[in-house]
Every structure is written in structure tokens, then in C-alpha cells.
Nucleic acid binder design. Structure first.
Lengths: 337, 337
DNA sequence: CATCTAGATGTAATCGATGACATGAGCCAG
DNA sequence: CTGGCTCATGTCATCGATTACATCTAGATG
């Protein structure tokens, strides 16, 4: 592990010189080609170690024309543990294959998605994982990404030929609402976030399907959407509880809202049945039932799809489904009293 | 915005051909060199637009020898919003300057720090931001990083000549404990995480300083360390409350522990004074007082230091301090009854 | 009118690694 | 003794962009 003076590193050429061979031989050694004499290999290896040489990945990718040893991930932000978990899960899997993860956030502004995607493809990432808030997909088409494989996470392809990692949020929410219905609840409030995003619509659909399955009318008063922020969700619940005929159960359709409902429940000592969405440190301890996704696994699956594209860059888009499930811890199992 | 057939992109040479000039002229146009005729510039610009050309950053960095347009961030993981917030804050600031953020996680294993750092420097990141769990710094020395600037986040340089973003956790915790003391509390429990990390030690030191300032003996029974996980923290508090002489106030020294204490407080309806550490969605609504850091700002400052190194790669290490503060919301303001 | 100068543009080497192709040594069969 | 073959290794063009240096043109100067 020897460094040389300034910031300049050992190059393959220097290794070749030190070992008294040509650069081609060093490359061959590096690639474990059989066409190299054991003695020579020995000398080269020694020189590499002695000079602390590591190849320049940029020069390599330039030459082989392939893509860089990195994968991009574009999200709306890292404001919740779900997004962070996806990133962590993806990064872990990519690292096993020696790839790096480059992240970009739109800060919740979908109009920035194209430029971020472009910045990633310009960097020649070998795949682009996207959790877009917007429904626009045009800028992800093969012509615009120059063939960079795209993996959509938790979002539908909407006509784009891309790999997709989906969670069956609609199914899980349906299970959750169904459970509440079977416990006798008829007035079930559903609180959702921005309905201009796919997940919100998907989850609401699951809720409505369950209601329809049981022939329960969908009371518009009990569906509150576009709730952004814990405080607003909390206030919305409080409002619902003052209805002439308040809900006896509440289902939250994202993490921030779940926290808001929980807040209302704790601070007003209310006992309505409650099913949250996603995980938070406190939910286990507080016995909060929740529809739970595994963000790390979702990230991992996205990474695996990205890696698979190394083998088969051209094949048709694959869809992987990661299950989400209802975790029963108490608050969602209160029968209607 | 025209794409050409396969994944192969427009190169500078093709632009030159289309515009009927040499590659050098295209480069000059791209760099706004004054040494290019307005007419020519016009033709080149048109060709660039028509072919949808964007430069290959890899080829560029290879030639200019400089570093890549990306900065690395190595953390223990993205298991809490603090780490995610730092990443988000850094990414946002870097993006303003057209730089990307590459992340790497050790999954809490400090022995992986060197290899991750190495992977980043091999990629020629223009700076390396580290939130190491370990105290080892040797692998970050200039000889090992080939002059890649290093920015430590929330960790001391320990002799390394690097930029540092520090938070005055010790001061803030001291303020918190002092407040409890001034409210009359004398039996104040402090719960900390892994003491083999700097932040835990720093925060404990703040707590002890406050006790010493007020001539209060430091009862070893009231300091519980190496608590990992919310459940363990919760159990630890429960244990403390069964002491012959239980604490009347509790101060938590990291986010996971804060959640654990909060859990105990809510589920056992206990009224001890409580000061948490860091933020969680619920703390505001539940009136939980806390020592709060601004992770986004910390990440932003780290990014700014990284960017500053572009100008002055050689200067001595700078230290930036981001203040943390006690946010009073109620649970930390209960006087001793 | 010859020459100089400044400005515009072209030529070609270069960054570090790779790989198609060329070379050279050693061996065997005829 | 020589053609033919194999294995180890070297040579050099290449990836895309940059830049030092060379070249050329047109207008200015004596």
C-alpha cells in the first residue's frame, strides 16, 4: 500500500514497468486469463501489491463502452424510513456485486424527475431505479435513456417497457378493511395522502373493494384525502370524531397519516379500531396493527432486477411483486363494542 | 432530442462532423471560449441540439485527470431519519452544483469502512463524507485516499487532517440535564447507545458535566449504556422505575432510545420528566421535549465543505459546527412534584 | 507591397485500460 | 532440418473529450 507523492495514482502502465512486462500482460493477469505464465503472474501480482495499484474504473468503462459500475435511484426524498429503507436495501445488494448506488431526490417536485433521470443516464449508470411521484413516463423511454434499463419501484409502468417492483398495497388494504368489517365495523374512515400519486389511489381502491365486497356503502364523509403532514391527519381524525355518526374504525393509508391518527388516539385516549400503514419504531410496542411493507426487500428486489439487466439488457420488462401484509398487534382487532 | 438506434450516443466527434468543424471547436463552444466565431458557435449549438448531444462525463474526467462529478457518503446505514436526513440535505446541496451523491453503508460494521472508502476513492469521487462508527482514521489519510478530501460528519478528526461537521451534542445535553436539575430533579437517568461510538460518549459527557456543575453525584445505577433497540431501552426504563429510589426524570441520548422511553411512558402512564434526543413525527404532537439536531443542515454543511475543496484542495482542515438545541414541548418541563 | 499580428480553427497527443492482432520461442512430425 | 503449431507476450488502435501547438486567414503597419 504505497502512495506516490501527489494525488496521482499508480497506473497500469507503471505496474507493467515495475514487473517488466507489457500493459496487456497486466490486464490479462488482472482478468485471470489462462494465457499467462505462472511466474509472470507472480511478478505482476507482486508489483500490483507493492504499488498499491487499483484500476481506474472510469478508464475501463470508457474503453469497454459498457456502463458505469453504478446504479441510480431517484426518489421524492428521504423524508421517511420507507424511502430510506428502499435505498438501504438496494445499496446492500448492489454492493455485493461491487456496484455503487447514486441517489437523487426531487424534493417532492415531479417536474424535476426528467432532469435527474437525465443526469443519471449521462453518468452512464448501468440501471436507473425510479420512485417517481408523477405519472409522466415519456422521459424514461429507451430513446431518452439511451437504453439504460429502468426499474420502477412501487409505481406502474404506464405503458413504459420497464422492470417493475410492485407491492400489493391494494390487496393488503383490502385485507385490513375486510378484517374491520368482519369485526362488525360499518363506519370505517380511510385517510389518504396526495391522490395524484399512484400508491394513494391503489390503497384507496383496496379499501373500496373491501367495502363493496361486503355491501357497505362508501360514505364520502369517511374518506379524507390529500392529507399532508402528521398534524393535518391528526386534525382530520379529530374532525371525524365529531361527526353526528363518527367512525368506529380508522385506517391510515400512509406512514405520516398513521402517525397523525396515533397521535389523536393517544392524546385523546380514544379507543376506535385502528390500522396503520408501514412501520414505525413505536408501533410494535404500542400494539398498533399495520399494513406492513418491507422496504429493504423492495430495494433488494429492485437491485436484483438491475443486476439481471447486466445479463439480458434487451428482454421484455419483468414485474416482481413484494408482498405486504397485515400485522395484527391489537389496535386493529377491537371488535365493535 | 434525437436518439440514434441502439444504446450508442452522440459523441462530440459526430457533433463536429454535423457542424462541419473540428472537435476542438465543439469543445471550445461548449466551454464558452471567446475564441470562437459567433457564426460557428451558432452552427455548433444547433448541431448539439439537433443530435441531442450531452458530453460523456467519464471521458471528460479521464482526460482532465480531475475527479468525478460525484461525492461519496459512507454511513452505518439508513436505519433512522437522522442518517437519511443528512443524506438528503447533502444531496440537495450537491445537486445545486451539478454533483451527484454516491452512498455506501456498512450495515453497522466498522470493519467495512476501509473497503467502502476505498471503493469511493477508486471511483474518483471529488470528496468523501464519512459518518464512521469506528475510531479508526488511518485509512482516511491522504496517502490512502490519494488526496481525496475527507469530511467527517459528527465525528472527531482524531488526528486526521480533514474537514469536520460537528454538532455540540455535549452542550445541548448539558443544557437539557441542567434544565432538569433546575426544576429540582436530582435523580436523573441517562440512557445511551453503544459507547464505543463518539456521539454516545460526547452526550454522556454533557450529562455528567451538568451533574458536576450542580454538585450532584453521578449515580452509576442511573446511567444505562449500550442499549440497542427500542425494546431494550423500554425495558431498561421499566427496570429503573422499580429501583428503591427511582429516577424522577429521564434523558435519552439517541433516537431509538427516545422511542423506547416514550413507549414506557405511554404504555405505563408514567409522568416522569423526559427529554428525548432527535426528532420523530410524533414528538411535536405528543409534547415531547427533545434535544434536536437538524440533519438536513448537517448534510448541507458537509456538502458545502466538499464543494469548498474544489477551490482549495490543499488547505488545512476546517471545522463547522451546527448547533443543536433543546426544544421545550412539555415533558421536559415538569418540575419535581 | 511585404510583413506582422491577432483571431479562428485544425491536428494530434493524451488520460488509463482493453483487446484484436502480431511476434517470437519452443516443440514435434516428417 | 524445416514447416507447422502452441503458448506467452508485445504492439498499437481505440473509447470520448480535452488542450498544447500548428496553421491559416484577414486586416493592420511601415
Amino acid at each position: 500500500m504505497t502512495a506516490n507523492g501527489d494525488g496521482r495514482r499508480t497506473t497500469l502502465r507503471q505496474v507493467a514497468q515495475a514487473a517488466g512486462v507489457s500493459t496487456a500482460t497486466v490486464t490479462r493477469t488482472l482478468q485471470n486469463s489462462p494465457r499467462v505464465d505462472p511466474d509472470t503472474r507472480q511478478r505482476v501480482t507482486a508489483a500490483i501489491k507493492q504499488l498499491g495499484y487499483t484500476p481506474n474504473p472510469m478508464a475501463r468503462s470508457l474503453r469497454v463502452g459498457g456502463r458505469e459500475g453504478a446504479v441510480g435511484l431517484v426518489t421524492g426524498g428521504f423524508t421517511n424510513l420507507f424511502q430510506a429503507g428502499v435505498a438501504a436495501g438496494a445499496e446492500r445488494e448492489l454492493r455485493r456485486s461491487g456496484l455503487n448506488l447514486i441517489i437523487g431526490t426531487t424534493d417532492g417536485d415531479p417536474s424535476r424527475e426528467p432532469e435527474l433521470a437525465r443526469a443519471m443516464t449521462d453518468r452512464r449508470v448501468s440501471a436507473l431505479m425510479m420512485m417517481p411521484d408523477g405519472d409522466e413516463r415519456g422521459f424514461l423511454s429507451a430513446e431518452h435513456t439511451f437504453g439504460t434499463p429502468v426499474i420502477l419501484i412501487g409505481r406502474p409502468a404506464l405503458g413504459l417497457d420497464a422492470d417493475v417492483v410492485l407491492t400489493q398495497d391494494d390487496e393488503s388494504v383490502r385485507t385490513a378493511t375486510t378484517q374491520l368489517l368482519e369485526l362488525g365495523h360499518r363506519r370505517i374512515a380511510a385517510l389518504a395522502g396526495r391522490t395524484d400519486t399512484f400508491p394513494a389511489r391503489q390503497r384507496l381502491a383496496g379499501h373500496r373493494t373491501a367495502l363493496a365486497d361486503h355491501g357497505v356503502a362508501d360514505d364520502p364523509d369517511l374518506v379524507v384525502t390529500d392529507l399532508v403532514g402528521t398534524g393535518r391527519a391528526s386534525a382530520a381524525v379529530a374532525g371525524l370524531m365529531h361527526l353526528p355518526s363518527p367512525p368506529t374504525a380508522v385506517i391510515a393509508l400512509n406512514l405520516g397519516i398513521s402517525d397523525g391518527v396515533l397521535l389523536d388516539r393517544i392524546s385523546h385516549h380514544r379507543g376506535y379500531a385502528f390500522i396503520a400503514f408501514d412501520e414505525s419504531e413505536l408501533y410494535t410496542g404500542l400494539g398498533v396493527s399495520a399494513v406492513v411493507r418491507d422496504p429493504q426487500e423492495i430495494g433488494r428486489q429492485a437491485a436484483l432486477l438491475a443486476l439481471a439487466r447486466h445479463q439480458d439488457p434487451e428482454g421484455p420488462g419483468r414485474t416482481v411483486t413484494v408482498s405486504s401484509r397485515l400485522v395484527r398487534r391489537g389496535t386493529g382487532e377491537n371488535p365493535l363494542s
